[in-house]
């Protein structure tokens, strides 16, 4: 009897120890659970819709760009009402589409800046001469006192007309005074077409493309045949800024020199300024000379993106093809 008791006590202590250990295991379970939940939380991506707010804004910009291009081309007498109708339509349909994903979007037309467009879209191309200027002097002023330019595109349809030397090459210049001139020269070496740029501070660069098919130069976007041209954007990495009009303060004039040394089409949209009256006719149906029409330079739209977790309300100004 006396021997039994110690064993009894030992048993009870073991039981209590076992029970307390079990409680510790459960506390450990809480800790392990939290660790696993943390891993789960870490693998969650972003808040649903947060990056969509920005990517959809980009898509809205592109849609408004198309609306403006349509209005400037087909509804140039009243581009504002055309763009307004387009923006309403794409807002309604876009909202309908995005609503199925739980996102509320709204695009509203707020305002615009008017401008004008100069273009020469003769099929097959024509020389960039001014019909009313004497043939011996093909240097003429395209526009005067322009604030900004966008969507400046030149298409060379016939490379054989290009000059063989840089000195007598076709030149397009942005000119504020004798010391602030930005020049673009187009000439050909026989096998290659050279796009040569010289900024107001004297920096120069060039891009070359092989001859053969029509060459499309998007001056304000910095592209030659769809590829980035460093002479129109930036010379080398971290190099000098070469964009259209670098070093030339606005308002500036736009001049064409040696207009007979090129054959093709061109188009540009300008803000501010006027044409000097010679050689520019109103409306595209008036002849093959460069013509001018009214155009929308930039549009401002209100953009609203909302989900249950994200709110983003802003105003976007769309001026496609403008130099950065």
């Amino acid at each position: 009897m006396a021997d039994l008791r110690p064993r009894d006590e030992r048993g009870q202590i073991l039981l209590i120890a076992a029970f307390t250990l079990a409680v510790i295991f459960v506390a450990l379970a809480l800790v392990v659970n939290s660790a696993i939940f943390t891993e789960n939380l870490a693998s969650q991506g972003e808040v649903a819709g947060s990056s969509e707010a920005l990517t959809y804004q980009h898509q809205v910009r592109q849609s408004v760009t198309e609306a403006m291009a349509y209005a400037n081309r087909y509804r140039y007498s009243n581009p504002t009402s055309s763009v307004q109708a387009s923006v309403d339509a794409l807002s309604e349909q876009g909202a309908h589409q995005q609503a199925t994903g739980g996102q509320l979007v709204h695009v509203g037309y707020e305002g615009s800046r008017s401008g004008w467009r100069i273009a020469d879209n003769t099929s097959g191309g024509s020389t960039f001469e001014n019909e009313s200027v004497p043939v011996s002097d093909q240097n003429w002023q395209l526009a005067e006192s322009v604030d900004r330019t966008r969507d400046l595109e030149i298409t060379i349809t016939d490379e054989s007309v290009l000059s063989g030397t840089k000195a007598s090459a076709f030149t397009l210049e942005a000119n504020e005074s004798t010391s602030e001139i930005w020049e673009l020269r187009l000439w050909s070496t026989g096998g290659e077409v050279v796009v040569d740029v010289e900024t107001a501070s004297g920096r120069s660069g060039e891009c070359r493309v092989p001859t053969g098919s029509p060459v499309e130069i998007d001056v304000t976007r910095g592209l030659v045949d769809g590829q980035r041209c460093h002479a129109l954007t930036r010379n080398g990495t971290g190099g000098d800024r070469m964009w259209w009009g670098t070093g030339v303060s606005s308002p500036y004039d736009i001049w064409i020199k040696n207009g007979d040394q090129i054959r093709g089409n061109y188009s540009m949209i300008l803000r501010g300024g006027s044409h000097t009256g010679d050689g520019l006719v109103d409306g595209p149906d008036s002849g093959d000379d460069p013509f001018r029409t009214d155009a929308m330079y930039s549009a401002t739209v209100e953009y609203l993106f909302r989900t249950s977790q994200v709110t983003y309300e802003t105003e976007i100004e769309v001026a496609p093809g403008e130099t950065p």
């Binding site: 076992a18 079990a22 379970a29 392990v32 659970n33 696993i36 939940f37």
Partner: peptide
């Protein structure tokens, strides 16, 4: 008590996802 504590402790494996 022994059985209860053992089953109590075993529950922690059932709760982890």
């Amino acid at each position: 008590l022994l059985v209860a504590s053992v089953s109590f402790a075993l529950q922690m494996t059932a709760v982890t996802p």
